[in-house]
Computed example of a mutant assay.
Amino acid sequence: MFQAFGFSLSVTTPILLMMVLGYIFRQRAMISQEFIRSGSKLVFNVTLPCLLFLNIATADVGALIQPKLLSAATAITVGSCLLLWWYGRNMGPAQRGVFVQGCFRGNMGIIGLATIVNAFGNEALAPAGIYLAIISIVYNLTAIVVLSAAQERSEQSLLLQTIRSTMTNPLLLAIAAGLVLALLGWRLPDWLTTSGRYLANMTLPLALLCVGGSLSLDRLKGNRSLIIQASAVKLVLLPAFSVVCGALLGFSGMNLGILYLMMATPSATASFVMAQQMNGDADLAADIIAVTTVLAVVTTTIGLLALRALNLI
């Protein structure tokens, strides 16, 4: 049990520390809101794509693509959305879609990858990157459906915009390019690989500092009941259900760990942007993001402790 507890803390404590430092730096004006915006943009457009590209380009392609894992994650996401949509049938139009999205859409690109690297090492980055690419598409399309249905109006223009942005997403392009190189067996020059690693190594520390610096619990003003319910689903019920499904399907070790850690991530910041675009309750979306981001460290630690104690990962 002590060994399992030590493992859980080794995964989540560095993430908590970096986010706390980001929050402290922001409060002490050591980093500004402009730094957070610029840093987040740099991570999304440059350093994270470098990280994913380099790890996928040098990996065994056959071991990367896990159809069973990806199919299970897609089915769990879509199935949970249907159940949550039914559960929220009495909510207002502005809250229903936002609530559902806040419950299923996780911050896989930053928090998910960070916990997976801490738990399984850099060799898990490549399969986690493929998972990220496929499930991000599922997230985007599902979010459009639930937010549009909640408003009872068609959002064809937003659907086209989302498809266009998905096709030009730096993360997906980097993953696709890495797969091409891996399939062709091409090797990058050492000087280019080294330069890319310099950028890649910046990714998780910078991203977590930006996440911590952007946190603000002072502005919580939405429906606290919905915030609590969404947080419970996102951080406890959905990850637990995913583990049960994964175990029944025969997953264990790194595959089960990837499924759990991706599902256990806090609500994604993209939820807020999507809620704004589709006239949802953006304040509710922001509140769910803030609360789940703070609590995710605790719930993930407990979840990892349970999985480790049961010898599932």
Score class of each variant (00 low, 15 high):
S267N: 05
F7Y: 05
T47P: 15
R308T: 11
T142E: 02
R89A: 11
L237G: 08
I116V: 14
N90M: 05
M263T: 13
C50Q: 12
T300R: 06
Y23A: 09
A59Q: 08
S8H: 03
D283K: 07
P49H: 00
M108T: 14
A282W: 01
N140I: 02
Q3W: 02
R37W: 01
Q156G: 04
I137T: 12
R96G: 05
S71T: 11
N55K: 09
A230N: 01
I163V: 13
G112W: 06
L259A: 13
V233S: 04
L183S: 03
E34V: 00
G213R: 11
A290K: 04
L192G: 00
R197V: 01
F25K: 12
W186S: 06
S216C: 05
A182G: 09
I228L: 12
I111Q: 11
L304D: 13
S216V: 01
V78G: 04
Q161G: 03
L84Q: 10
A182W: 00
L70R: 07
A264L: 13
P239G: 05
S231P: 00
N90E: 12
G102C: 12
E155N: 00
R96I: 07
I302C: 12
D287R: 05
I175G: 13
D281C: 05
L261I: 11
N90W: 10
T265A: 05
M202G: 07
V46W: 03
I144W: 04
A177N: 11
T203P: 14
A73Y: 06
V145N: 06
A63W: 06
S136M: 11
N255C: 08
I24S: 08
Q161S: 09
F241E: 08
M1T: 14
G253C: 12
L188P: 01
Q161R: 08
I313V: 15
E155T: 00
A240P: 06
L305Q: 14
V138L: 08
L172T: 07
D190F: 00
F99A: 10
T293R: 07
T299R: 02
